[in-house]
Design a protein around this nucleic acid. Structure first.
Lengths: 332, 332
DNA sequence: ATCATCTATGCAACCGATTGCGTTGATATT
DNA sequence: AATATCAACGCAATCGGTTGCATAGATGAT
């Protein structure tokens, strides 16, 4: 068996509690005693049993990150992955572990998500907006959690961090006008999603007076995006620019438009939400509303740790987007 | 405070150990007593304290998945993400949690990875090939772990699960020949990576007798892939088909080739390793050597759990690839 | 009727830390 | 010199389960 705090104490000729104090730097311990204890730990190759510590301290030393990926493809969602990376960075710096859990495919019970909290496996939770409406949060009480994304509904006063979708959409609209596009359209996404609604709100709000807001929802697939884009072009007053809800949409629209003989960006401008790595390598490269996902994850994790330490009250944070201009919307 | 096993026992009028037995279904307990205990648990809204259980049982109930992402972009690596999704699925079905850890950006010490094991935070570890050479594994002893990917070096007898890269490359070569391409080239990747070496080995082995194996390494960027591809075309005997090491390479090569006036697939065939979701939406769509990443993750997790339960000895598994034929290599 | 078996449950040690309280000796205060 | 203060460390309870051993009662075998 591995050495325990008792073994170390015996070898160093002190009480286990003294070893514990050295380990945690709590009370005042003489240099001499510390030396002996460190030497003993070294000799026995001592490593803390974090489980025992958790039991005694009441803290698990882990946070849970919940996602709601319907399938492997959704999981691989760049947006989430990149945030997760940042979250892990922050957690590791804080000495915390990150436990991931998928709420979507739970075997008939999202209970296991709650159990992360109820069975004290984590000290805090990062949740996707979709889970906020669940019974889950009723049980949360004042358990520390932060929503990664603005919840559509749910109790007021929840902590969340999100990108400013309205601002991002407005940024794209302004860019379109600046480049001489006049008849804009929003394409892609699902009306029921809150972030889509907010983008459309920002898009509408930034339109010139008198403009008609065209919005074309899709089923989210690349194929449907292409189909819907062409359909939009086949109207009395076709748009000359598309703000694409996501990268799959942009890929589909771009492909279909080119195949139908439209020239991008000369005839039609394209801007996509989220600067997916490959956005720079399409033909032409896509102008993108950039979401700093690393920052998003970082802020979310930071806020969660502040909540865990009870240092702050609940709060909501929105991160501004920026525009990365590429060929797909360069007309001037 | 939340209810404990003692509270439940008192309310049910039994001994805590009896409650524990009911909880774990261990010994024989009368239906009558069970009823009383379940009722008490219900009434008190009892939830197991998994930390206490871990301490007593010596099992953490979690596995660790280590990755070595150098940056956020690498982390978002589809390949890894999709496997991770499958791993989480299997773990959740087994009642285990998944702790993720990034070995690359650890604050000056990969020690925190070891600590997952040494501090008993996890019962098993899924490691990337790169970590196998670390001092880490020296400390592993018989601690259960599985490498996700064939290690380049490291002690013999390690457990790993990987896709059969040689077979995949051979599959692509055979396909090229079947489609009438004659002068093949491998492009992309880094010579030092073991999986690249294995792909090239498979590629070479499948070439027709007398063929010259052309291999062009890149720095992994899309830009360099394009540059290198054009350079390859600008030789006395240019290739008429490229087997691309990864999707960024394929994107870069495709873009550069088209820009230089080459027609794909008529003049030049393209096959890419790994069926990245967007591979189907390039122009033309890319033929891909398909890696079943979900299966990869699933097998890896399964093997780990078998190792944890000491039910199997170490073993190595290779998954075969399949070819998804699309336009980029359709000449016939 | 006696003894072996078995079922159902209690008892208490244990897992490996943390921590409030108490004690001891040394230094500082007046 | 007597007392207050404080640094340094020991003691033992505690966190919430698990589990080997013991035991009482019920059942079965001979």
């Amino acid at each position: 068996m591995a050495a325990t705090i008792h073994d170390v104490a015996k070898l160093a000729g002190v009480n286990p509690s003294t070893v514990s104090r050295v380990l945690n730097g709590k009370a005042s311990i003489s240099e001499e005693t510390k030396e002996k204890i460190y030497a003993a730990m070294q000799q026995l190759d001592y490593h803390m049993n974090s489980v025992a510590r958790s039991l005694a301290s009441g803290l698990s030393g882990a946070i849970g990150v919940v996602m709601d990926a319907q399938d492997a493809n959704a999981f691989s969602n760049e947006y989430f992955s990149r945030s997760l990376f940042a979250i892990e960075q922050v957690a590791q710096a804080m000495g915390y572990n990150v436990i991931i859990a998928n709420s979507a495919k739970r075997a008939a019970n999202s209970a296991s998500i709650e159990d992360l909290m109820l069975e004290r496996k984590v000290d805090g939770l990062i949740l996707p907006p979709s889970t906020v409406k669940l019974a889950l949060l009723k049980k949360v009480g004042d358990f520390p959690y932060v929503v990664l994304g603005q919840p559509d509904i749910g109790k007021q006063g929840a902590s969340w961090v999100d990108v400013n979708n309205e601002q991002g959409a407005a940024l794209a609209v302004e860019h379109f006008y600046a480049q001489g596009y006049k008849h804009l359209a929003y394409i892609g996404g699902d009306e029921s999603a809150g972030f889509v609604k907010r983008r459309i709100k920002g898009y509408r709000g930034a339109l010139n007076a008198g403009s008609v807001a065209m919005v074309h929802f899709t089923d989210g697939t690349t194929e449907d995006a292409g189909y819907v884009a062409l359909e939009a072009m086949n109207t009395p007053e076709p748009p000359d620019a598309f703000l694409c809800n996501d990268n799959l949409t942009a890929f589909g629209a771009l492909k279909a438009l080119k195949a139908a003989g439209w020239r991008v960006p000369e005839q039609i401008g394209l801007v996509v939400f989220d600067n997916y790595p490959l956005a720079a390598y399409t033909d032409p490269p896509l102008t993108a509303v950039n979401v700093d996902t690393a920052m998003l994850g970082e802020e979310t994790a930071r806020l969660l740790f502040q909540r865990i330490e009870r240092r702050v009250t609940n709060r909501q944070t929105m991160l501004c987007t920026s525009l990365i201009e590429r060929e797909s919307s360069r007309r001037m």
